[in-house]
Nucleic acid binder design. Structure first.
Lengths: 227, 227
DNA sequence: GATTTCCGAAAAATCGATTTTTTAAAAAAC
DNA sequence: GTTTTTTAAAAAATCGATTTTTCGGAAATC
């Protein structure tokens, strides 16, 4: 295992270029809803905001557009995708399907090492649950928990798509008004998922994961005004 | 419906920028295997090859890396991904799964308009079958047939991922030695898929599509030396 | 009064040059 | 003889300036 990465998201441990740093920062800001949905991005002000020149900034914007976190129109720059209810439904439904696929494979491939990593990830998530003021801590622990759950599925492309959908989904979820009651249920489900994983009860786990995403989907829908 | 697009791949009808033109050209060249697998791309020679400056070229390379047709390492540029048997297997298996999902939805949503578009796409594909020397014509008709088949599935994100996997898959398939016997079977299966689509025989269609991709997968494996 | 045409400002895209980093070979040290 | 250090060339990344295109309002036309 290489140098563990303490920082936030997916990470460039060595030789971060300006372009990759802006990419990471901008990606986080987009997912965290720091820009208004549908907003046109003024490249000039982004230059100031992220303290970089045009070239690395434009490279980052191009990557994000290819990834689906920005919309690019040929001679008129970049804009933040609008929040659309039908798109959220698409994202959530597909996420359920793909994550259930991955979960099945993960249950087959996961070994004792995986079980202990999952327990550890769950523990950190519970710790983060206790400090509701540290939102980003919780977000990171939550993301890692779900990653760990599916990690041994054996399909890099499936994991890639799931990650992409998760990023899309989170943009909606983080913009939606919080719902403490649902949140409590969601938190409990994480523990139940761990339990089912240990016992490899795939059918129940699939049903629970589907319900988990469905509940979160319901909350995330609050981010949309009209469809 | 806007202006139909006669040209090759996915298309920028209005105001093509240098960056988007290089992106399209480079993407095709990568899928067509015009670069050696694993090859390091020399940006200087790409500038000459595509007749553009650094900025639009680098923007195109960044998009392609985000899309998965190039590998990017931070201070050492871009390289063509190597051909790996295990990755091809991953791509093909996931493609089968996702396309079968989409097919089911397409059968439910597809209307008479879809049926006629599918018949038309199949007709063009058969015409292209007759002229084996016009490879690119056939490739285009083939891509469009499969797109048309799944188009009404109703999930933009699912279609997006399928398209992406299809591009990945084709890079292997087009590099593999052709197999006329299998090719004949594959051609026949296109007609059978149309027939099953008309009659909405979903289970048989899913089995056939799965077999179709599986057969093509077998051929594509010929592109890999070792795993 | 409504539509079209024509500017000028603003923004996007591109270019050419500069800076930074890597690479590989030669020299030095062990 | 091997390893380390140095250094020059090559490549990647970035910057600043220029060119091209879009956008919005004023003037002209219908």
């Amino acid at each position: 295992m290489s140098t563990p990465n303490v920082s936030g998201a997916a990470s460039p441990p060595t030789g971060a270029t300006a372009a990759s740093r802006v990419f990471d920062a901008l990606k986080q800001d987009l997912i965290r809803g720091r820009f208004a949905a549908g907003e046109k991005l003024a490249i000039g002000s982004l230059k100031t905001r992220y303290q970089v020149g045009l070239s690395p900034l434009r490279e980052a914007l191009n990557r994000l557009a290819a990834y689906g976190l920005l919309e690019q129109v040929n001679q008129r720059g970049f804009r933040v995708p609008p929040l659309r209810l039908d798109e959220l439904d698409d994202i959530a439904d597909l996420r359920s399907q793909l994550e259930c696929m991955a979960l099945t494979q993960a249950f087959q491939n996961g070994d004792a090492e995986w079980e202990s990593l999952l327990l550890a990830a769950h523990h950190r998530l519970r710790r983060a649950d206790e400090r509701p003021q540290e939102v980003e801590e919780w977000e990171q622990a939550h993301l890692r928990f779900h990653r760990t759950l599916l990690a041994p599925c054996g399909s890099p492309w499936l994991l890639r798509f799931i990650e992409q959908l998760h990023d899309q989904f989170d943009r909606y979820r983080r913009l939606a008004p919080p719902n403490p009651e649902v949140r409590e249920v969601l938190d409990r489900q994480h523990g139940e998922l761990v339990q089912l994983a240990m016992e490899r009860r795939i059918e129940q786990a699939r049903a629970l994961l589907d319900e988990h995403i469905g509940l979160s989907h319901g909350v995330a829908r609050g981010a949309c005004s009209a469809s």
